[in-house]
Amino acid sequence: MQNFDFVKPSSVAEAVAALAKSGAQALSGGQTLTPTMKQRLATPDVLVSLTGIAELKGVKQNGGVLWVGAATPHVQVAKEAAAVFAGLAGLAGGIGDPAVRNRGTIGGSIANNDPAACYPSAVLGSGATVITNKRRIAADDYFTGMFSTALAEGEIVTAVEFPIPKRSAYAKFNQPASRFALTGVFVSQATDGSVRVAVTGASNNGVFRWKAAEAALTANFSASALVGLTVDATDMIGDLHGTAAYRANLVKVMTGRAVTSSR
């Protein structure tokens, strides 16, 4: 790690101003950024901590919408979303280990958009809206490929608004070493019956929607609706933990399991 300055603003406006300086970078839970800095792969001059900003924290229900502040740690989402949004709470409760869940945040996760991270599938798989200091971005427009998002330089995520689905679940198959998702599938059925299926961990292009499954499940919300479907392995990740064909298989298996366990 190299030396850096540290600021801890208490409002979004102050944070945005601090981030405008050259070499400044946002620090949320630090569960991705600090390891990267230790390896000297990131060498920011100034870290702008977001965790002291009250307006970036919390889980709030507003009618049919669940608002989650960007700097809310996973452990809090796991607890506070459980009653209304089981799929999201279950996903948050299955990230990493207790230390990671106590520090890591939803904002950091979706800003980073690791192709094996869990949260992007919930955001995309429930049709959520990402709110930044500048605008509202629909999930379908937000994730633009591995480690890539629609965020502009210096733009920060302030919250995510999830439409609360009728039922949902996240089924994750662990990468054995890191226990990120080797393949994770988020399935939600909205109050109007429409279904979204978002897959993380599997594709070279990052999180994606499996539209054929969405159509089949919208017609018949049951694992048996998937039987005839196949998943194309062409764009799937192949690495020492799993071949592309294996991941394609997992997409289908985990989608079925998510459907079966959804509530």
Binding site: P176, A177, S178, D239, L240, H241
Partner: peptide
């Protein structure tokens, strides 16, 4: 079931951290 020290054909250690080496 889990552990594997794997080098790629260029001799880079693919399982060089706990992200990829399964203890």
């Amino acid at each position: 079931l889990l552990e594997h020290g794997v080098y790629d054909e260029n001799g880079q250690l693919l399982s060089g951290s706990y992200m990829d080496y399964t203890m």
